[in-house]
Design a binder for these strands. Structure first.
Lengths: 213, 213
DNA sequence: ATACAAAGCTGCACTCGGTGCGAGAATATT
DNA sequence: AATATTCTCGCACCGAGTGCAGCTTTGTAT
């Protein structure tokens, strides 16, 4: 779950102290690598960007790259994961009581949907859709988000009997969000993201809700 | 969509003639490679199985392997795709009239669920879950199934206005199936797959159907 | 401040997946 | 039988990723 930069981060988490110069430099280098990688991916394409180019651009050696990222792909995965699951968790837990799970998740996603319009999001999403391998990874990341959202929902409704249905809610909600984003990008951004999200959740309700038997 | 072995298969599809010895040998070699690969994956693990080993086991050269499969992964993808989408399509189109889309898909999946119990399915599914890359590919394959199922649903309900909701149905149904299979494997196969599938669809109906607004 | 331990950086050599190319063998066509 | 097409193969090559060993930098104990 933790992914990168966790081999010596245990102390940091516990003591919450940057532990000095070492950790700060590490953080700086990490961000420099990610930044360089994403920039080169957007400009020259994913496949055409070699690790040597990233390493040179970030001012490190090729070998050192692997001390920060497990693989080339992980630059993208890290970006994709960074924040989103955590933001969604916060937004879910911040929803007022009295709503059913589906409403909570939908409204939480609506809160976050403003972040989708950024240039960075669109630019990197184009990279993510540029190759088969990356599309696969992107899909897999939705799986991670699904797990995280499920954990959050279980945190809010800690009833073991609801576990199975909360898994379904997490799956279908993230799927709805995925389809909404796809449709939105497909449409070229004319209508706002929110309307696509609403339409997706309404569609699920009408298709799955009518004759439950 | 076609994937492998399509560079010279055009003639075969059109004329539906095996066109003699060449095509037969090609088919034989293809199956021999797939068989060898799957066997070695199951026995020694995916990463530990090199292309040289597969090629040697199948009696071909390393270079020739890439004339049959685009990549090592494709052996697994091909197995995973082979038949399923097509079977699901047939089962969907065979459902009696009068059912709503969700019911049609659910009942079609129930028809196919008997195929999940085979030893081959379980064995290869274990390989698919053995590495991060493969898990990602597996997820991505669900995306392909989603597209195929969506196309089938559009074939049965060719109303352009329903397109968006049919996409949702395809997404949520395949997600439900995925969760059902996961839960079933998790449970060790005590209860039959069917009950997990039923539970998943019922759960979706109750969570998304109650207060739609 | 000095000495020592720990962590980080780097180059080297290596494995493996994957591709382009060209020659030669097998198959199909006339 | 001659010709064209396709299959197979070896070869050289590239990029991603790993293990190792040595060196430098940072942190800590004395």
């Amino acid at each position: 779950m933790c992914g990168i930069a966790c081999q010596n981060a245990g102390m940091d988490i516990v003591s919450s102290k940057p532990s000095g110069l070492r950790a700060r430099k590490r953080q700086e280098t990490l961000e420099r690598i990610a930044e360089t990688g994403l920039r080169l991916f957007s400009r020259n394409g994913y496949e055409a960007t070699t690790l040597d180019a990233i390493a040179e651009g970030a001012g490190i050696s090729r070998r050192t790259f692997f001390h920060y990222f497990k693989s080339k792909e992980e630059i993208l995965l890290d970006w994709q994961l960074r924040g989103f699951s955590a933001s969604l968790r916060k937004a879910v837990l911040a929803q007022p009581a009295g709503k059913v799970p589906v409403e909570v998740v939908r409204d939480a996603m609506l809160m976050l949907s403003v972040g989708f319009r950024t240039q960075e999001f669109i630019s990197i999403d184009r990279v993510l859709r540029s190759s088969e391998t990356l599309k696969a990874r992107k899909q897999a990341t939705y799986g991670l988000h699904e797990q995280a959202l499920y954990a959050t929902l279980m945190e809010r409704w800690p009833d073991p009997d609801r576990g199975a249905t909360l898994r379904l809610v997490a799956m279908a909600s993230l799927g709805a969000m995925r389809l909404a984003i796809e449709a939105w990008i497909q449409a070229g951004g004319d209508r706002p993201v929110d309307s696509f999200l609403h339409a997706a959740f309404d569609g699920l309700a009408s298709e799955f809700g009518k004759p439950s038997r």
